[in-house]
Design a protein around this nucleic acid. Sequence first.
RNA 1: GCUCCCGUAGCUCAACGGACAGAGCAACUGACUUCUAAUCAGUAGGCUGGGGGUUCGAGUCCCUCCGGGAGCGCCA
Length: 637
Amino acid sequence: MKALTEEYAARMREYLQPEFTIDEGDIRFSIPPNRRYGDLSTTLPFLLAKRTQQKPIEIGKRLVSLLSGKFLPMAEVSLAGGGFLNFTLDRRCFLRYLIDNIDSRPGARNERIVVEHTSINPNKSAHIGHLRNSCLGDTLARSLEYLGYPVEVQNYIDDTGIQVADVVWGLLYMLKMSADEIRGIEDPAALLWDVYSRVSRHLAEDPESEKARNRVHQAIEERREPEYGVADWISCRVLEDHIRVMASIGIRYNLLVRERDIIELDFFSRAARILTEKGILYESTDPEKRGCRVIRYRHEDLEKVVIRSNGTATYIAKDLAYTFWKVGRFKEDFPFREFSRYADGQVILTTDFRGGREKRDFGPAHRVFNVIDVRQSYLQNIIAQVLEDLEPAPCGERPFVHFSYEMVALTPRCVRELDLPLSPEDEKKPWVEVSGRKGIAVKAADLIQQLTVRSRVEVDKRNPDLSEPARNAIAVQIAVGALRYFMIKFNARAVIAFDFKDALAFEGDTGPYLQYTLVRLNSILRKLNKADQAVSGVDIDPSCLDSGESAEYFELLLQLSDGDNRVESALENQDLSGIANHAFALCQAFNRYYHGYPVINEPESSLRFLRVQLLLLVRERLGRLLAIMGIPVPERM
RNA sequence: GCUCCCGUAGCUCAACGGACAGAGCAACUGACUUCUAAUCAGUAGGCUGGGGGUUCGAGUCCCUCCGGGAGCGCCA
C-alpha cells in the first residue's frame, strides 16, 4: 500500500503541477473513517485553499476535474465533506494488487543503526522497569530491521560504577564473606537483590560505611584485589543472568560494551580533546565552577560540569565517549572477544581491553538510538546538542535519538500485595516508582514465572491431549506474548502504573488475543486442501460477495495494507504503541469476519476461494506485526 | 524558580490538525452438536480538567488557570 500511495502522490503532482505548486510532502494519504467517503483520502484541497486564499470546495472541484479518470481502472477520485479528495478503489483491482504483492517488503537500506537498550547495572536481578526498556528497545530494533536497516543492538554494562561497588562492599565487609565464598554463590543476581537494598539502607544511615564503600569503588577502578576480582565476577554473573532472562522473552544483543574498557582505553580523553578543539568544552568563568571544564546546554542556559576542578570526570563523560565511539569519531576501536552464545549459536560479542582478535562485523553508526527512560533526558539532550554542533545534520535527520519513555511504577495496591514497605508519603501518591535500591519492584523473572504458571492453567484446560512438555512450551509462548504486548501497548510518554490484574490478563486487548487470532487462522489453513490456496492463473472476482460481506472484506484489506505505514510512523513519532494498536484492531476486524463467514465449510467454491485469499493476506501481514513485536505464535493454544 | 511530560467513559487506554471521540476491562443481555468461546453480537456509560484564542476544521496547535508526575549536583 505504501508503494501504491507513493505512486499516486507522484502522479497527482505530475497531473496538477501545471496549475498548482505542490511539494513532495504535501500529499499524504489516510484511510477515511467511513467507507462512504472512499478508501484513501487526502486533504490536499484544504492545503491548496489556504495557499491560494480560495474556498476548499472550489479547489477540490477543480482537482477532481483534473484527476478524473486518470487512475482507472484501479481508482476513481471524488470530493466529499467540504474538501476531502477521496479515492475509491476498484475492489477487484485492489485485491489482485495485494495478492500479487503479498511477499513484498520494504527494500534494504544502507544507513547503519545502533540501538542501545537494556543497560542494567550488573549488581542485581532485572525488574519490570528494565523489562519496559528491553521490550521497547527490542521492538525498536526489530522495526528498523523490518524497514531494511542494518541494525546492531548494544547493551552497555556499567561494571565499574558505584552500584557494583555497593554490593561488593556489602558482600566483603557487611556480610564478611571471603572472595572464595562469594564465588560459590549459586544465584548471585537473586541474592544481590536483597543485599543491594540492605546495603543502600545501611549506607544512608552510616557515613563511615559510605567512606568504606568509596574505598571499595576506588579499589575496583585501580584493579586491586580482592575488590576488583569480586566486582568482575559479580558483574559477569549478573550480566549472564540478565541475558538469560531477556533471551527467554526473545530479546538478544549483538554487543556488550563495558565501561571498564572505555576507561582502560581512555576514550574520554580523546573525546575531551575533540570537544576542546571545537570550543564546546571550555573552562567555566562562573566563580562557583572555578577550575571546572563545562559544556553549555543552550535550551536551559546552563553549564554542565564535565570535568571537575580536581580533574576527574563526571557521569556524562563516559556517555559522551561511548557515543563518540558509536558514531565513529575515534580512529581507535575496542578489542573484542566472544562473551557467549545463544542456543542457536548466535554470538554475543563483548569489548575487552585485554585484547582479543575478534573484529566486529559492523561499522560506525549513521544513526544512534538510545533507549533510556525520560529521567535521563537532561543528559541525553546535552549529548544530542553536542553531536549536532560537531556535525550539523541534514534537515530533519538527527544522528542521535534519545528514544525516551516514561518509567514503570507500582500501584500502592500492588506494593501491598507484594508485602513491600510503603512509606506514609508514598501511600498518598497515585503510584510508587520502582526502585532496585529500595527493593520496591517486581523481579522480571518472577513476573515471567507468574505469567507462565497462569497461562499453563489455561493451556491445560484447553489441550488435555497434549504432552506435558508441549503444554509447557505453549504456556511459555503465551506468557512471552502477554508480557511483550503489555510493555509496548502503552504510549511511551505514559507512566505504566503496574498492576498484576492488568498485566496477567489474557483476554481482550492483550498479546494472547493476537496469538489466538493467528493460531485459529493457521489452523483453518492447515485443514484446507492445497487446491483452495492456489492463486496463479485463477481469476479473482470479489463481485460474488454479498454486500455485507463485501464491506467487511474490504475493510480488512484496507486495514492490513496499512501495516508498513504504521511501523514507519511509530518510529517517526517515537511511540511503538501504534504498532500494537494496529495489530489489535486488525485482529478485531478479522475475528468479527471469521465469526460470520465460514471458510472450510463454505460449499460455494468461488466464495471459499476468496475467503482463503483473505486468510492468506491476514496471516502474512499479522505475522509480520507479531514478529516485529517479538510475540511468538504457538501451533495451538 | 526554570525545563519537559501527562489530564479523554466507573477503571486502563486509543484517536499523522480532518469527517459521527473509539477500544479493552468491569456491569447487564445473548451465541458453543459449529473452521479453537483466550471468541463473537448487543445494552449502558462522554461539556475530551476549566477559560480564552488560531483555523474551512481543535481531544490534538497557542495563551492562561487548576490538578498530577519527572528533571534541573564538582552523585551515579
